[in-house]
């Protein structure tokens, strides 16, 4: 589904990704772990097409297309979702308005009919319920006045509404307490893994520091990102070894 080959990227003059290669197959949840400064967030931002992140070499193929040739909104319409480590506040724009514009823009780009206001609200209510978020919060301005945990939960509600084929989740577990972590983890499972929701055709790249989210969203594969490259790929047991022994011991 996603194939990254020898990717090099820099921010300003500083090279961050230095020959990163990774393959994520459909139906797979692939966890990326790694020490601070390894390039995890840079990888997420490059995949999302954030301005300021310059690709200097390599390629990214997504569903048979050159992902890097697409604008950020075109990537979203192709089914890519980027879960932000720090979701952005947008004063003056409500979640409902924002997400309806977003969903209908994606549908239009795919040649589908737009959802009416009523249809959209029904969908939003459904997905908010999945994440145990009050519908009233969706009527408020995008992320304004939300706590860190609420922002992350709102990200998952957005993911549920937009229903992507591929999600890159950048430290979605940071800022969550234990209950919220379970809810968010269960949300990821329901939206991206459940068979009745097309799970076998979807995939997730889950960037995290901690085992605790992986206890809920059981990854199929775990890769270690260090020094701008994937240095090791294994099964879920690799995450447990990291948790027990630390990055230095495992990557030595």
């Amino acid at each position: 589904m996603l194939t990254i080959t020898n990717l090099h990227a820099q921010v300003g003059e500083t090279p961050i990704l230095k020959g990163l290669s990774l393959h994520v197959a459909a139906g797979e949840v692939h966890a990326i772990m790694g020490p601070n400064g390894a390039g995890k967030s840079t990888l997420a931002n490059v995949l999302g097409g954030k301005p300021g992140y310059e690709v200097t070499g390599g390629s990214v193929e997504f569903g048979g297309e050159d992902l890097l040739a697409l604008e950020p909104h075109e990537r979203a319409a192709k089914g890519l979702f980027l879960g932000f480590q720090y979701p952005v506040e947008i004063p003056g724009v409500s979640n409902v308005q924002f997400l309806r514009e977003a969903l209908n823009a994606q549908r239009e780009a795919r040649g589908e009919e737009p959802l009416s206001g009523g249809e959209f609200l029904k969908l939003a209510k459904d997905k908010a319920g999945l994440l145990k978020m009050d519908m009233e919060m969706l009527k408020r301005q995008v992320n304004v006045g939300f706590s860190g945990g609420e922002k992350k939960r709102a990200e998952m509600v957005q993911m549920g509404i937009l229903d992507p084929a591929f999600a890159v989740l950048d430290e979605t577990d940071s800022g969550l307490d234990i209950d919220a972590l379970r809810i968010v983890g269960a949300g990821i499972n329901a939206i991206m893994r459940a068979k009745e929701n097309g799970g076998p055709d979807k995939a997730v790249l889950l960037i995290t520091h901690y085992q605790r989210l992986l206890d809920v969203v059981k990854p199929d594969k775990v890769s270690i990102l260090a020094g701008g490259r994937i240095v090791e790929t294994g099964g879920p047991e690799l995450a447990l070894r990291l948790e027990a022994e630390g990055y230095d011991a495992v990557t030595a």
Binding site: P51, P72, H73, I90, V93, Q97, F98, L99, A102, Q106
Partner: peptide, 24 residues
Amino acid sequence: EAARFYMMARGVDPATAQRLLVQA
């Protein structure tokens, strides 16, 4: 620009993102 990228990452085209931000 952070808000504009956030909107684009959700599928909103650049012109619509700009209109929403100006409207707000």
